[in-house]
Design a protein around this nucleic acid. Structure first.
Lengths: 342, 342
DNA sequence: TTGAAAGCGCTAACAA
DNA sequence: TTGTTAGCGCTTTCAA
């Protein structure tokens, strides 16, 4: 492994100049830079990240803290973030709290504190006071994606508005009995999301002069089977059956479509179904939904973090920029699972 | 941020002793260790990973190189690996080659070379000669999960055997016309997998004295919609319709089940379906399958890497242990999508 | 625009 | 069992 001195020697300059030429920090003449770049590439030189980090205080690495990995939303956010980060020469190290063991504690007590990242983002994570405090105490840029994180910048859709939009779509199609499949309270992601979505749903009903009927609400776990079960209950009663279902996630909505089928009901003739997400499978099932573009949310999060890091390096740069709330766009996508109430 | 000297001062020992006490390397008396641990915890001291890495040559970080993130198999492998790694105090940094831009090049040319990881594993990745060479040249432990990686240890199921098992299950139920949904050649994961699975399928047919019929083979893209389309073609012809389908992945198999339904066919009465994976949705659909436990494969990969690192540190430790091929277990799970041929 | 040199915060000989 | 000390490979003042 060639080191910086090898490059310096071959290029006939000092190591300081090599560092400047390769990092782009500090003045280097065009010709010198060319010589250095040439020498580096000839030797196959790649900077040692540890040495560089230790000397500069910057790691060029971003932490991603997620509650699980086996959910489309999380992985999509990470994909988006990583694409942006790689492009800028940053790495992404992943902290998955999913295990039921002491992973979570260990991550917050140890891993995140050992200075391996310049900044971090969390995805749909509700942090305890202590956890949030620890992160904030690092004094590093922080962004919460898909869930509010006190005192920290966030990237998230407006859950109330999105749920309102989905419900309104059903209302405008003439539906009066609209059921909602939300989340149970034990649901361990940030439970503001289900609550906000339920709020938007109820708000839309009220604005349309429709009653909010407890019996039309079912809790599930954001999975397809969960949505199936909930929909079976909602649609099972022949009397007063809802004519439309708004599910808080596409996976649950797809479960609802399958439940309707199994009950001999036709979607959308007998019952309309709408979800939130625009999950990859939604198109296949013809599911109407409100797309929330998680990849873009991840990109946005990465961009915010990089901008904050960039800002912190500038002479008068704000070391701790004010937390900003970035509302990610969400669009109604109408497919074949929703239709006018006959 | 307290440093090692702060701890040393508070504990009344030298920094070397602090390092030894906290890392567990080198002899420290019980009482001294206790004093140091106490001081460290009082000060909230956490080792700086950069300084530690630079001084020791070990980063306590493992690289995970994956082709995508939005597939159950990849994320499951990563989850398993990370659980093991976190437990041992290691971080995992993720290199997702998914973007169509220069990500892949950049990762192999730069990110993986800058010494940020002690070892790495790839998941279902076919590497070019050059890429493999670069990785090997690092002289670091390497494991390929779910795909052969020349000259490197691997963790993978026996694809031929697994496909053979799935097909045999159908044969033993009396099926004679067994179709196969495999992968197209453009499919960009390691295409040995589809090929091996097809091989196992044909092998099982031959052993049963059944003909291998080209028309009973369809290529798809390992997705649910892809499986749906393929099955529609296979099951669409009223004449000589297959009575069973073996799909090379559960997602395709689920697509096949849905296709059968849409054609008015009952599963398993009119057609049996089996897949490979034991995807989280398979139980819901009653899909018979061969489980391949990707979480365990990830755990195994991590364990192999850690063992290699451990070995390399010992005096007479082999710096480059012989590549081993670890065959991961896979079990037939019979649910309700397969039944005897009437 | 360049070079010399002082660290960055730890670990690991080596000596005691 | 402990302390002293010389780096690990860079970056970044500072001076030229």
């Amino acid at each position: 492994m060639a080191g910086i001195d090898d490059v310096a020697r071959l290029a006939g300059v000092s190591t300081a100049t090599v560092s400047r030429a390769l990092s782009g920090n500090g003045p280097v003449s065009q010709t010198t830079r060319a010589r250095v770049v040439r020498a580096a590439s000839d030797l196959g030189y790649v900077v040692s990240s540890d040495a560089s980090s230790l000397a500069s205080g910057r790691t060029r690495n971003i932490g991603a803290v997620v509650p699980h990995l086996n959910r489309w939303f999380f992985t999509s956010v990470i994909e988006g973030a990583e694409r942006v980060l790689l492009r800028e020469g940053y790495d992404l190290t992943l902290y998955n709290l999913g295990g039921d063991g002491g992973e979570r504690r260990r991550v917050f007590d140890h891993h995140l504190l050992r200075n391996r990242v310049d900044a971090a983002f969390t995805v749909s994570l509700e942090l305890s006071e202590e956890e949030a405090g620890r992160l904030l105490a690092l004094g590093k840029p922080l962004v919460g994606v898909g869930g509010p994180l006190a005192g920290v910048s966030t990237v998230t859709i407006d859950d109330v508005a999105v749920a309102h939009l989905a419900t309104d779509h059903l209302v405008s199609l003439g539906h009066r009995r609209i059921a909602h499949i939300g989340a149970s309270h034990e649901f361990d992601l940030d439970f503001h999301i289900p609550t906000s979505r339920r709020l938007g749903y109820e708000q839309a009903l009220r604005e349309a002069g429709l009653p909010v009927d407890e019996r039309l609400h079912r809790a599930a776990d954001f999975t397809l089977p969960g949505g199936y079960e909930a929909a079976k209950q909602l649609l099972g009663t022949p009397h007063d059956r809802p004519t439309a279902i708004f599910a808080a996630s596409d996976e649950m909505a797809i479960g609802a479509i399958l439940a309707a089928r199994d009950l001999g009901l036709s979607v959308p003739r007998d019952v309309s179904v709408i979800g939130i997400d625009d999950h990859p499978l939604s198109e296949f099932f013809g599911l109407s939904t409100v797309a929330q573009h998680p990849v873009r949310q991840g990109e946005r999060a990465a961009e915010l973090l990089l901008a904050a890091l960039e800002g912190a390096r500038r002479p008068g740069g704000a070391p701790a920029p004010e937390p900003v709330s970035h509302t990610a766009p969400a669009d109604l996508i109408v497919r074949s699972s929703t239709a006018v109430h006959p």
